[in-house]
Amino acid sequence: MLFRQYLLTNPIAASYLLGCGSLSQGVVVDPLEDEVDIYIEEAKKLGMNIVYVIDTHLHADHVSGAKKLVEKTGAQYILHQSADTSYDFTPVQDGDELMAGNTKLTFLHTPGHTPEHISVVVTDTTRGDQPWFVLTGHTLMVGDAGRTELASSIEEGAKDLFESLKKLTSLEDHIEVYPGAFSGSVCGRKLSGKPSSTIGFEKRFNHALQIGNKEEFIDYMTKDVPPRPDNFKEIRKKNQGKL
């Protein structure tokens, strides 16, 4: 498997290029609009064709590069089936699987940060039949969890997020966690500057995961909420194709 993590600082976000080198099939996850050519150039260097472009959710802090990347590569654009957009995409639901060569992508519906949020569990089938890592977007991040009020009420989002975190932490402890943001992002609090972790480490030390009661978790998520991103409503509408 080939894997690249891109740590971006304006805005603070993480995006990913991964896939099967032997069969030349690549996947880009959470691309930023200004970085589209970088993903294409990197894929060419690695000898991969980009076959899938995935947004873990409809972002509210930056403009997605997914549609532009799809136009340039002919890849399929993947979103959760509940995504509210004015354009067509390939819908997935909880438990669906796609293959990019020998790389298996298993989709988990993990709402909370946004209603349509998905996480992507990745398996390199040339090494084994068990997952290796999970791309968690803005659901489970290193040190905390994603904010919950940019696309719903803060309380409803927190209720959904509580259940989504339980789903993610049911994965094996050794599975690596690669989030969509890190320290300095407005989409979470108490985030680490280390942009990867494991399920087991987060279960032991992540602030949000230390709360086992749903009502206490909702209360936790409604306090010390960071400032909202500038023009977040307009950015999300643009990513929905409604601006």
Rank of each mutant, 00 (worst) to 15 (best):
38 I>G: 03
57 H>Y: 01
7 L>F: 01
140 L>Q: 08
219 D>V: 08
95 G>M: 09
180 G>D: 04
38 I>E: 10
88 D>P: 04
9 T>D: 06
20 C>H: 05
67 K>S: 13
41 E>Y: 13
154 I>L: 12
189 R>L: 04
230 D>F: 14
200 G>S: 09
205 F>C: 06
192 S>L: 03
32 L>P: 01
69 L>Q: 09
206 N>C: 14
15 S>E: 01
170 S>D: 13
212 G>Y: 09
64 S>G: 04
220 Y>D: 05
148 T>M: 03
51 V>A: 05
160 D>W: 15
129 D>C: 06
193 G>Y: 15
85 T>S: 04
162 F>R: 02
236 R>H: 04
228 R>P: 05
144 D>M: 07
18 L>A: 03
27 V>D: 10
56 T>G: 12
31 P>I: 00
30 D>R: 14
116 E>K: 03
159 K>C: 02
204 R>C: 13
145 A>T: 09
4 R>G: 00
232 F>N: 10
210 Q>G: 12
124 D>T: 07
171 L>H: 09
75 A>R: 04
38 I>T: 12
233 K>A: 10
103 T>P: 05
44 K>W: 02
57 H>L: 04
47 G>L: 11
163 E>I: 13
21 G>N: 11
170 S>L: 02
62 H>Q: 05
91 P>K: 03
224 D>K: 15
132 W>S: 09
85 T>H: 07
222 T>P: 01
145 A>R: 05
136 T>M: 03
159 K>M: 02
141 M>P: 10
227 P>T: 11
190 K>L: 12
70 V>F: 06
58 L>F: 08
88 D>W: 10
214 K>A: 10
100 A>S: 06
152 S>F: 11
44 K>D: 07
160 D>S: 13
58 L>S: 06
76 Q>G: 04
55 D>Q: 09
51 V>E: 11
54 I>K: 03
93 Q>K: 15
173 D>A: 02
230 D>K: 15
189 R>G: 06
52 Y>C: 01
214 K>I: 03
109 H>K: 13
116 E>C: 06
226 P>D: 02
34 D>E: 15
32 L>K: 09
68 K>S: 13
159 K>P: 00
37 D>I: 03
104 K>P: 00
113 H>L: 00
187 C>E: 11
225 V>K: 08
93 Q>E: 12
190 K>M: 08
27 V>I: 13
235 I>P: 02
124 D>N: 14
127 R>M: 14
18 L>K: 04
189 R>N: 12
108 L>Y: 13
163 E>G: 02
14 A>F: 02
82 S>A: 10
243 L>P: 00
157 G>Q: 10
132 W>M: 10
123 T>L: 09
82 S>K: 12
27 V>E: 05
172 E>Y: 11
97 E>V: 15
188 G>I: 01
41 E>V: 10
17 L>T: 00
179 P>E: 11
212 G>I: 09
180 G>I: 01
55 D>A: 05
223 K>L: 11
100 A>Q: 02
74 G>H: 07
93 Q>M: 14
16 Y>S: 03
93 Q>R: 15
45 K>N: 06
118 I>L: 13
101 G>Q: 07
95 G>Q: 09
24 S>L: 11
230 D>V: 15
41 E>D: 11
205 F>W: 14
213 N>L: 08
221 M>V: 03
100 A>P: 06
